[in-house]
Design a binder for these strands. Structure first.
Ligand code: ZN
Ligand code: ZN
Ligand code: ZN
Ligand code: ZN
Lengths: 133, 133
DNA sequence: GCGTATAATGTTATGACATTACATCGACAT
DNA sequence: ATGTCGATGTAATGTCATAACATTATACGC
């Protein structure tokens, strides 16, 4: 059983909004899309997002203040995740790299730094958007 | 000659505020510290920060919405920079890693993704803060 | 010097993102 | 029933960043 079935109503609505979206959404965009479902205040969105992030179903993109559904919600190997974010079309690719993870882990170990969250985000233009003007 | 000497008055004030600070500062904190120097509006700070970032003298920490003076303002090898940010004392370590850079570069090349800015930020507890409670 | 283009600055207002504080409700155990 | 806990509803506030417009400083060709 995935955690997916144990979501509350609000969590389900937010999750569905992110699943239905082509790319990442801001919290306030989610709020707007859920007005008809009874959403009224930002906190309703932020509270749901917080739980969904804890479950690993949603990721926050720090560099653009937005949220995106996990691309691999079933394989919860979320030690280090990297994102490539297209600044033109908004497409997000989620990937991980063992070598990067190992190198950053080596640095933190060497400096006795205890990491709690690591952000790796590459902004730029995706293949199709680079092809265009 | 470093670019440092060619700064305007506002840029100099903001640069000095960041240099004097123990850790990263938010734009509004900088604004408050420069009230006595005539600063009145956020835009004065943001405009200076923008230029300083272009010159490589200041970095923006995306994950905490703050700005920090470059730790190596003279060696402008700023292809990929990583930050370790202590969430307790605010200390920031700036470092770079050729292997990480190479791996991320390999991913973007393989996917024909043209990167414009890459963010690598590790939040957690630094050595001294881990030692404490 | 003088006109002119460009960059920097000052100021007000507004937009965008996120949290605090407090009240309410439902499920569940005692 | 009553106390606890998690989820929810709502208003207000806090925090971060930019738009729009007017003004002033600087650099440069003449
Ligand atoms: Zn994921
Ligand atoms: Zn694209
Ligand atoms: Zn630097
Ligand atoms: Zn610390």
């Amino acid at each position: 059983m995935t955690t997916r079935n144990q979501l509350t109503r609000n969590q389900n609505l937010v999750m569905h909004a992110l699943d239905s979206a082509a790319g990442p959404l801001s919290a306030y965009t989610i709020l707007d899309r859920l007005r008809d479902d009874g959403f009224r205040a930002p906190l309703q969105v932020y509270r749901a997002l917080e739980k969904l992030q804890e479950m690993g179903l949603v990721h926050r993109l720090e560099s653009i203040n937005a949220f995106v559904a996990c691309a691999h919600p079933d394989c919860h190997s979320h030690d280090m995740i990297a994102f490539a974010i297209c600044e033109k079309c908004g497409k997000v690719d989620e990937f991980s790299d063992d070598v990067v993870q190992e190198r950053l882990g080596a640095w933190t170990a060497r400096h006795r730094f205890k990491p709690s969250k690591t952000t790796v985000e590459i902004r730029g233009h995706c293949a199709s958007c680079s092809a265009d003007g």
